[in-house]
Design a protein around this nucleic acid. Structure first.
Length: 128
DNA sequence: AGCGTGACGAGTA
DNA sequence: ATACTCGCCACGC
């Protein structure tokens, strides 16, 4: 413990350690209660850093470690490639969904962001 | 060093 | 309602 003149070790950083920002994002995602969702933009704003795209990237890379289906797009569209998987979770948690219109192509419902959106517990959530 | 990328978001046509 | 554009910022190469 005397020679800390490491060639490249500016600090303890195991290869399995996630980027700090990513770790924060995952932490927030894990805070979202069942039956509610948070948008990428909201997570970013809640963190006070990064943007919706950064949150999305983190979820794409490490989302498997958290309830990824609770982090959604602002428009309420189900995650492409995982629609049915996410839909199963929403129905299981009772997340407010909005039935699709007459468009036969999109028979899949979308999230009712008006009711499903969670503010992160920072303030009183929208009552009735 | 810099550049391109993206599970986005809001605005415009 | 859809299609397209621009801006956003962390991260890998």
């Amino acid at each position: 413990m005397s020679q800390e003149s490491l060639p490249s070790g500016t600090g303890p950083e195991p290869a399995d350690a996630l980027p700090e920002y990513a770790e924060r994002v995952l932490d927030v995602a894990d805070l979202i209660p069942p039956g509610r969702v948070m948008t990428y933009g909201d997570v970013a704003e809640w963190l006070g850093e990064g943007g919706p795209r950064q949150v999305g990237r983190v979820m794409a890379l490490y989302g498997g470690a958290v309830p990824w289906w609770r982090v959604v797009r602002a428009d309420g569209v189900l995650l492409p490639g995982h629609e049915l998987r996410a839909l199963g979770h929403y129905r299981e948690e009772g997340t407010p969904l909005k039935e699709a219109g007459r468009a036969a192509e999109d028979h899949l419902p979308r999230l009712d962001m008006r009711r499903a959106r969670w503010d992160g517990g920072g303030r009183a959530e929208g009552h009735t």
